Simulated assay, not measured.
Amino acid sequence: MMLKTRKLFQQSQFYSVACLSSLQEYFQLGNSFFQKKMYKEAIEQYNQCLKIYPEHVTSIQNIGLAQFQQNELDKSIQSFKRVLQIQPKSDKALYHLGVCYLYSNQLELSFDVFQKCTQYSPKNEVYFYYLGLSSLRMNLLCQAQQYFLRSLDISPTNQEVLYCLGVAYHLQGQKKQTISVYEKLLSLDPKNLNYRNILCALKVMN
């Protein structure tokens, strides 16, 4: 009886090792397809991983990223929600979910997700930037400015955040602040003709 039990245990171990090996092969092949921007093929390989281990979080997350790249936003949202069912405090999955909501114009949901992100990681300038972007898209200009400034407190030379802050100031009719922002942008990137043209246009405006 003991010999039979030992044999069954050894067979189980062999099966587990074989499954793990197959999972790694499918996952690596999926990554290879993803890097080549062959997203449909990548998803097929990641799904093979999930047949072996249905809660393989990285495969689910990569499926969501591949779906996002194919502009399948509804499917991508469901994939990231599935990750969060397994790992509720995954700020990476929350981040990607927020971006999907933003791109699909679900702005209030995007804002709520990025607020949660800042609770998990309060010194991440990217999350405050996206809070500002969501607010800007909802035409909450003062709120957008506050979040862009929070982002710049953490990363003062981020040109993308500065540019959006300039847009928020401009839409509020705050000419002096807008000029100040674009002067800073031009000091960071003196050869940028876009910044230079915007600044010239602002200075000749009444």
Rank of each mutant, 00 (worst) to 15 (best):
V167K: 06
I52C: 06
Y147M: 13
Q145Y: 00
L102D: 03
K81D: 01
I77G: 00
G173I: 03
N197G: 00
Y95F: 15
N158D: 15
M38F: 09
K81A: 00
F27G: 00
L23A: 02
R137G: 00
L109H: 10
L171V: 03
Q24H: 04
R82A: 09
N139F: 10
L193I: 09
C100Y: 07
E160M: 12
S59D: 03
F33M: 03
D91I: 10
H96K: 13
N124V: 07
K116Y: 10
L171A: 04
I154P: 10
Q115T: 10
K92N: 13
Q35C: 04
S90F: 05
S59T: 04
F80D: 05
P122F: 12
Q24P: 00
D112W: 06
Y101V: 04
M138D: 07
K191V: 00
L141Q: 07
R6C: 08
Y169H: 13
S16P: 01
L140C: 08
Y46L: 01
H56C: 02
Q78S: 13
G173T: 03
L171G: 00
Y129P: 01
Q11S: 12
R82N: 11
K191Q: 06
N206L: 14
Y127L: 11
S110V: 04
A168Q: 07
N124M: 11
K4E: 14
K89H: 06
Y127C: 09
G132R: 08
Q45Y: 15
T178A: 08
A42F: 02
Q106D: 00
K92S: 11
S155M: 07
T178W: 02
I86P: 02
Q145P: 00
G64S: 02
Q67G: 02
A93E: 05
R137M: 05
S110I: 02
G173D: 01
P88E: 04
F9V: 12
Y15R: 15
T5H: 03
M1P: 12
V57C: 04
Y39S: 08
K191D: 09
Y46H: 06
L102I: 11
S22W: 06
L162M: 08
Y53W: 09
E108G: 01
Q177H: 04
L84R: 04
Q145F: 03
E41P: 03
V181I: 15
I86W: 07
L3G: 10
P156R: 14
K123V: 08
K175G: 00
N62G: 06
A93V: 05
K37E: 15
I179Y: 07
M38Y: 11
L102W: 07
Q24N: 08
S151A: 15
Q172W: 06
K123I: 13
